[in-house]
Write a protein that binds this DNA or RNA. Structure first.
Length: 263
DNA sequence: ATGGCAGTTCCTAACTGA
């Protein structure tokens, strides 16, 4: 099975590129999208349903929004944190549409759009750190509830190691690389999740996001912030994990490009 | 770096993103 993650930065703007990518990648079983930026009633479902995908979406106006496209129907679709951690813990977080998950072939796919955090010390930064705490509770409960394999993927807005950044100098003061953000993500991973990209690609120089500004992509000044984290058995079974640079080369691209795991 | 790019809406200005 192949599971891809792609922050498309607006599904309506990127619709034709996503269709083209799915046609070029017919072996992808599940595509997790982030930053769809559209309410559910306006999501362009038809073109993807015509390609025989089952769609599971959770969007809001202008910001955020996640979706899962699957070749086969998924089961136990959960939207937001609340169905797993309860309303009290999820209350401040589910207004932003950043979490959707579903089960396929006994593997629970969790699709995340982690908050950006804006700037270190800002309210949004504190929100991001708290969000990771709720995520940890959410994933721990998921594992407790049904000890199936987990594939937690999406836009994490954190580069965990210096080698995930083109020029890490001074980046500890930069959102996405600050020590507190890295610790918050590492704390989530202690429940038993591993970065599968690093199983196959131990070296630096691999990125999934490039700033639109300053010709970031042309100069390969990127960050690796889109990840797949797997539970141990699934990690051991994994066959490959690759970043597809092609969509980033197109006219009017998303600032992110897809990452695909096979297990 | 008041920077710069791109997307959205309360749409030609202001916001959010990363």
């Amino acid at each position: 099975m192949k599971v891809a993650t792609w922050n498309v930065n607006s599904i309506r703007t990127r619709q034709e590129q996503v269709i083209g990518w799915l046609k070029n990648n017919p072996t992808v079983d599940v595509l997790c999208l982030q930053e769809t930026k559209v309410v559910d009633k306006d999501f362009p479902k038809t073109p993807f349903e015509e390609l025989n995908y089952h769609l599971y979406i959770s969007g809001q106006k202008a910001y955020n929004g996640v979706a899962i496209f699957s070749r086969k129907p998924m089961e136990e679709i959960n939207i937001g944190f609340a169905p797993i951690v309860g309303n009290d813990l999820a209350a401040d977080f589910d207004a932003q549409k950043r979490v959707i998950s579903g089960t396929i072939d006994n593997i629970r796919i969790v699709n995340l759009y982690v908050p950006n955090g804006s700037a270190i010390g800002s309210d949004k930064y504190e929100y991001k750190l708290k969000w990771f705490q709720v995520l940890r509770a959410y994933l721990a409960k998921l594992l407790e509830r049904s000890p199936s394999d987990l594939c937690v993927c999406g836009d994490f807005n954190v580069a965990l190691e210096d080698k995930d950044i083109y020029n890490p100098k001074g980046k500890e003061k930069h959102v996405m690389a600050s020590p507190a953000e890295r610790e918050a993500l590492k704390d989530v991973l202690t429940i038993g999740l591993k970065d599968v990209f690093r199983k196959f690609n131990p070296e630096g120089g691999h990125y999934s996001w490039w700033d639109y500004r300053h010709s970031g992509f042309a100069k390969n000044r990127g960050w690796r912030i889109d990840h797949h984290y797997l539970t141990p058995e699934l990690f051991d079974r994994a066959l490959s994990c690759q970043i597809d640079l092609e969509p980033r080369k197109l006219e009017r691209p998303s600032d992110h490009t897809p990452v695909i795991v096979e297990f």
